[in-house]
Write a protein that binds this DNA or RNA. Sequence first.
DNA 1: CGTAGCCTTGAAGGTGATCAATGTTTGTGG
DNA 2: CCACAAACATTGATCACCTTCAAGGCTACG
Lengths: 238, 238
Amino acid sequence: MNESSKNLQALKGVLTELKTMPLFQELSILQLEELCADAKVIVANHRERIIQSGEIATHFGVVLSGAYKLSKTTPAGEDSIVYFSAPGDVIAAFVMAQKNPVYPVSVTAMGPSRYLSIPRNNYLTTWKNYSNLIMNIQNLLASRMNQLQNQKALSKANLQIRLASLLMTLVAEKNLEKELIIPIPLTRKEISDSLEVTVESVIRLMSDWSKRELITTTDHVITILQPDQIIQIMNQDS
Amino acid sequence: MNESSKNLQALKGVLTELKTMPLFQELSILQLEELCADAKVIVANHRERIIQSGEIATHFGVVLSGAYKLSKTTPAGEDSIVYFSAPGDVIAAFVMAQKNPVYPVSVTAMGPSRYLSIPRNNYLTTWKNYSNLIMNIQNLLASRMNQLQNQKALSKANLQIRLASLLMTLVAEKNLEKELIIPIPLTRKEISDSLEVTVESVIRLMSDWSKRELITTTDHVITILQPDQIIQIMNQDS
DNA sequence: CGTAGCCTTGAAGGTGATCAATGTTTGTGG
DNA sequence: CCACAAACATTGATCACCTTCAAGGCTACG
């Protein structure tokens, strides 16, 4: 078995993986094969950067497993995390339609992660014509824009409120009865880069919450022990 | 001439107006007629709200003239301005593809403005199939998301830097040699609602800049007298 | 002519930034 | 396997920027 047919075999498995995602449900394996022509699976380790902001955008892609953070470098030289991408998310599709597209953000793996990288050309030819697929992608982007707008509306609020709000948007299922686990491993620095505050501020607050047993952290995985309390903090005024 | 044929006449004029916009350049008047079936021109006065955040989204639209602000109400009861929309902008297209769409932001006229309101159904039937049109809309949204992300990356910076940056993104042409005029009339309150600070802070800073003759305001129209100075403020550290 | 929207200025106070120092964990190469 | 570096977490003291509160003035408009 030569190299390229091995790639094909691997891709077959990925296609069935794609088919489990809401985004591609309506599509057949054959259609997915067409959409993912010349696509490649990229395996990345923790902290590995797979897309560099500012570079010419030649590929877009789909997160298969793990998690990625989308970030920009601020003029002050710090990182600003714009979004946390989980499996099923589409990355960089947004800029594919532009004439000379440039990646607006960097994409970095958080823990071992897999990503399906697809040539830009596929978007401009095949993807573009699956109007239902494009609508689905638009919905993903709509929710991302919504999240950004909500964060903007909150940016005048207390750090407490913003942190509580961030944690709640990151939990997968929102069953308030029991503990909630945040499915993405997060360092305090990443939280502070997302909230646009210093690490120290985040640490002080989270230490306090840990002492009060509202949350707990093991190996960068945050568990919300008392969701109702966090919600209450989130909804308090100033 | 009855009411509905008068509407049709009015719409004809609007279609040629649309055709001058980059978004619709490639389309014929006939195609535009199809895309804008059952559309209605909405004329709004200063401070008139044409879309209310939270309501069920039944229409999307195109800004014809004037300007609109997109805003959310913060938990604290204040306004957060998310975007300033100028003629040629598409509004609320983003949520049209969702199952039970709800407007994520309110839309308010800034000065007398005209807006073409189009039924959601058009988007789901005709618009959706014009893939080039959808790509153009995606580009508009991409630039809007980019602006949000840039603002987020700046949110830790000084108010000076953020105000300078806002003013520069709002000017239409960026000829640094001469004075720059911001084409949208803006109150200090609107600027503060966009920067997520208090009015007082904006006033103090802008008064200072006015005294130093970096900017001047007449009737809510801001002119940047010394663009190079504003750029320098924008690029300073801290 | 009174109200509403907008602009302005001053004084006091708080939230988070900054700076500095130290501890802990993880990973890497000799 | 140890030594050392790099990433991450923590704590305290001081300070700056922006908020808050209060009071007043200006203009447009019904």
